[in-house]
Amino acid sequence: MAAADDATFASTDDLDEAEQEAVQDLLFRLADDELVLAERYTEWQVRAPTLESDISMANIAQDELGHARLWYEVLKGFGYDETDLIWERDADDFRHSTLVEQPFAEGDWADAIVRAYLYDVAEDIQLHALKNSTFEPIRDRVGKVLGEEDYHLEYATNWLERLAADDEGRENVQDAVDRLYPYALTLFEPTDEEVEATIVERGLRGEDLVELRDTWHDRVSDFLESIGIEVPGLDLPDQYDVHISPDELPEHLGRDGDHTDHWESLLDEMTEAYDELGRDYATHIMDDDE
C-alpha cells in the first residue's frame, strides 16, 4: 500500500501493463455487477407487491444501470466500445458475482429485498474503499454513485424490517438469506489472485477483499440478527495461498468467468433484440454523463 501514498494515475496513459490489467479488472467487477443486477431487478416491473414498490424498484434498477454506465465509460479509455463491453461479449467474459445473476422464484419479494440488501451493503463498503483510489477516473466517480446508494440501502432495510415483523415474512427472509448468503460471498472473491494483489498494492482500492468481506459480514450480521434473522458464520480455512476463501462458497463464483447456467439465458434475453436486428453498434439516445 506504500504506493498509494504518493502515486496517483490521472488517466490510462499513466498506467504500466500490470496496472492497466488491474484497473480493467476492478472496473469489470464493478460494472458487470451493476448491469446484471439491474437487469434482474427489471423483472419486477409490474410484478412488485404494490405500484409504489414497483416504481421504486424500477428506479433503483435505473440507478444501477447509470452506475454501470459510469464504470463502462472508464473502460472505453482502454479501447473498448459498447458492443465489446455488453452486446457482443461472451457470457464467460463477464466478471459479476453469481449473486446478481440468480433468477427470482415467482413472487418471491423477500428474495429481491434480501439480495438488494446483501449487495447494497457490499457496494457501500466497496465504494468507500474506492474513495481514495490512486486511479483518478475511479475516484472521481465514487461520490456520484454513493449519492444514489443511500436510498437503496434505506429501501432495503426498511422493507426487511417490515417483512421480518411477522412469522411468515421472517421465514421468507430467512429462506432467502440461507439461499443467497453463499452467493453473496462471491462478491468478495478475486477475479485473479495476482491481479487482485496489484489492485491493493498500487492503491487502486484502499482495502483488500478479505477486509471488505469482514466489514460486510459484521454489518450484515448485526442488522439481520437485530430483526430476528440468523446469519451463517464465516468458516475460513487454516491454510491458504494469497486470498482467503470461505468454505461456504457456492460451486460457481462468477468473478472468474465461471457462471451458473442462469447467466447465459439472461444474457441471451438481454441481447435478443440486438441479435435479431442484426445490429453491430449500440444505439445512443442520450449524451454520456461526463
Partner: peptide, 20 residues
Amino acid sequence: NVHAPDREMALLFAEVQHGR
C-alpha cells in the same frame, strides 16, 4: 398520493414517485 403502511415508507415511495 402514495399507498404506504407508514410515514417512513410513504416518504421513500414519494421520493421516487413524485420527486424523480
